[in-house]
């Protein structure tokens, strides 16, 4: 089982077991200072992306997705970006998978602190 399949299974499991509204709808207000907060923020955004609620939300995600892709390209190169895009294309909750895949790469090769800094930038000024 590849990591992408495991990720997909986790996403499916998370979607199935998720409580209706334990997490805030305003992730931009979260101050990232610990890995737990990073995970919490990513969970919020992944859910929003998965649900894809309405046109306005899609536009926000278009910006967020472009930013994630730019950061992936900057740190890991065009080839990695294409590989991650390819792996996430067919995945359920596609954009959310891209977000999590990018986060895994950032945490592994840049460290948690740098990832929190990148994530703060990625989701700044988004609603």
């Amino acid at each position: 089982m590849t990591w992408m399949q495991r990720l997909r299974a986790r996403l499916e499991q998370r979607r199935a077991t998720a409580a209706p509204a334990p997490l805030p709808d305003e992730p931009d207000g979260v101050t990232l200072t610990s890995p737990a907060e990073l995970e919490r923020l990513l969970t919020v955004w992944t859910r929003r992306w998965t649900r894809s609620r309405g046109k306005e939300s899609d536009a926000q995600w278009g910006v967020a997705r472009a930013r994630v892709e730019a950061e992936l390209r900057r740190f890991f190169g065009q080839g990695t970006l294409q590989r991650v895009q390819g792996a996430c294309r067919g995945a359920p909750g596609g954009g959310g998978s891209l977000l999590l895949a990018a986060d895994r790469l950032f945490v592994a090769f840049l460290g948690t602190r740098a990832t929190m800094a990148v994530t703060r930038k990625l989701y700044s000024n988004l609603q």
């Binding site: 992936l72 390209r73 900057r74 740190f75 190169g77 065009q78 080839g79 990695t80 970006l81 090769f109």
Partner: peptide, 8 residues
């Protein structure tokens, strides 16, 4: 395969 990123 990865390209010209800083980590690569």
């Amino acid at each position: 395969n990865m390209g010209q990123g800083l980590v690569a």
